[in-house]
Design a protein around this nucleic acid. Structure first.
Length: 479
RNA sequence: GCGCCCAUCGUCUAGCCCGGCCUAGGACACUGCCUUUUCACGGCGGCGACUGGGGUUCGAAUCCCCAUGGGCGUACCA
């Protein structure tokens, strides 16, 4: 069997975090099985759907590196891939249902329906459609429609129970009578979700439906359609929901829920995917940091967890840092340069210097922007106001160190040097230790204070060779 | 209301299907110590969970039942 899966968002906003996760699941499954991953746009809700959101979502998906094999922008043999362009198919298939007496035209007004529903709810009965128009003959229906009466197409739900095996939930049973006759085509001719999905999934030869748990109850209606059309249902996997800290389904009020926001904050796409995958799925070898694109057949839809996952980005930040450290040096430099202000001295440094600098700095970064304060070590001359720094400045040993170092730096500059080496630095510190007889805290913090104007920071033997002598000299003349 | 689903550290999770190796493992966060000051990284620790009650069994996080809690759905939204 050829595996064909799809991600089917509605273009009513930017790509949601939960949507991204579902898209990734489908994408990874297709890759693992050597199948196809399809993007289908479900834009039958004309009120809320907008083309610009479709474009935005495709861009977001691209940013995440989840490229689909077929879709409205990519083409394919099973198009069109936009539901709004498939209306003739839904119409045709609905006619088949009517011809087979599996559906009928319904003329009940909204007011009538609401009134009946209220009565049912008040009597603690399920608010199902009472089947009034089931008895309207096809001739009469034709006449009423010709006279201009509005009609929807209602599906005649069979009175029986349905069951299926879900890759996540196991054996699921829907007892009979759970739903009444429901609408499949609206008065305006547009299909309703549960109906359109099945027509599309059948015609697009979808083999596996991987989606969020909120769709589990929809599976019942969809199963009914598969049966009505005499088609075999696909395999299903309903992944757990992403929820907020209040344990409610993740939505806008939970803060940053659109992928776009993470892109704007410069998160690394591979980290994003890594984190999202871990929310509801676990690596067979319990690995935590990995490139999801390298997973291959390790990705298995039977490893989903059933319970919902609270979306909490603390771990995302950590994972972002891990992925940042894994980036090739050249790429890291390019990323860093993109976020640096135009006049930043980093930009003017030589390639080798940049390489050493980012290699050293990345250990302390979770985000690209984290390098900005770190670069102050090499270019800044702000004097620390920390208590430790003030203390270091109060020692009588510190001016001696400063005087000695200034001499050395001046010498080096006179010799035409721009930087010192690590060996030079070691010589300095040995001199302070051996000749000036300063040791311990006075030694290290003293040198640091004189050379960096700070009390804390990275290992001096790495920082000092990366700091322009010009800057060191300037600092040594300050205090 | 009715239906469906879920239930392990604060969070993400392993283990559950095929009961014993679980005095429940890992990760994030928090935190202590170490690495010739500090921070970060790293290493070694700490804190910290099987929702409750019944059953089945020699033995249950694992199987069954009930309760409780939570979620999803119940649209001419998707």
């Amino acid at each position: 069997m050829t595996v064909r899966v799809r991600f089917a968002p509605s273009p009513t906003g930017y790509l949601h975090i939960g949507g991204a996760r579902t898209a990734m699941y489908n994408y990874l499954f297709a890759k693992a099985m050597g199948g196809k991953y399809i993007l289908r746009i479900e834009d039958t809700d004309t009120e809320r759907s907008e083309r610009k959101f479709e474009e935005a979502q495709i861009e977001d998906l691209k940013w995440l590196n989840l490229q689909h094999d077929e879709g409205p922008d990519a083409g394919g043999d099973y198009g069109p891939y936009r539901q709004s362009e498939r209306l003739h198919i839904y119409k045709e298939w609905a006619q088949k249902l009517i011809d087979n007496n599996q559906a009928y035209h319904c003329f009940c007004t909204e007011a009538e329906l609401t009134a009946k529903k209220e009565i049912a709810v008040a009597a603690n009965l399920p608010p199902h459609y009472d089947g009034k128009c089931r008895n309207v003959s096809k001739d009469e229906a034709a006449k009423r429609m010709a006279a201009g009466e509005e009609a929807v197409i209602r599906f005649k739900t069979p009175l029986k129970s349905y069951e299926f095996t879900d890759h996540v939930r196991g054996h699921v049973v829907f007892p009979e009578g759970m739903v009444g006759d429901f609408v499949c085509v609206r008065a305006n001719g547009l299909p309703v979700y549960n109906y359109a999905v099945v027509v599309d999934d059948i015609t697009m030869k979808i083999s596996h439906v991987i989606r969020a748990e909120e769709h589990l109850p929809n599976t019942l209606r969809q199963l009914m359609f598969y049966e009505a059309f005499g088609a075999n249902p696909p395999e299903f996997a309903h992944a757990s929901l992403l929820i907020g800290e209040d344990r409610q389904k993740l939505s806008k009020r939970h803060g940053a829920t659109s992928v776009r926001l993470y892109q704007e904050q410069d998160y690394i796409p591979s980290a994003m995917l890594n984190y999202l995958l871990l929310l509801g799925w676990s690596h067979p070898e319990e690995l935590e940091i990995f490139d999801v694109h390298q997973l291959g057949t390790l990705f298995n839809i039977d490893r989903f967890i059933k319970s919902p996952a609270i979306y909490d980005i603390k771990k995302l930040d950590f994972i972002n840092g891990q992925h940042l450290r894994l980036l090739p040096t050249d790429e890291l430099i390019a990323k860093v340069e993109k976020i640096l202000p135009a006049e930043h001295p980093f930009l003017k440094m030589e390639k080798e210097w940049k390489e050493r600098c980012v290699t050293l700095s990345k250990e302390k970064m979770n985000f690209f922007k984290d390098i900005i304060p770190l670069l102050e070590l090499y270019f800044g001359n702000e004097i620390s106001t920390e208590a430790d720094y003030v203390e270091a400045r109060s020692w009588e040993t510190t001016p001696k160190i400063q005087e000695y170092l200034l001499g050395e730096v001046t010498k080096a500059r006179a010799a035409g040097k721009s930087f010192v080496t690590e060996a030079d630095y070691n010589e300095w510190s040995n001199h302070v230790k051996g000749e000036l007889k300063i040791k311990g805290k006075q030694l290290f913090m003293g040198i640091r204070a004189a050379l960096t104007l700070q009390a804390h920071g990275s290992d001096l033997k790495f920082i000092v060779p990366l700091t322009p002598l010009e800057i060191l000299e300037k600092r040594l003349k300050m205090s």
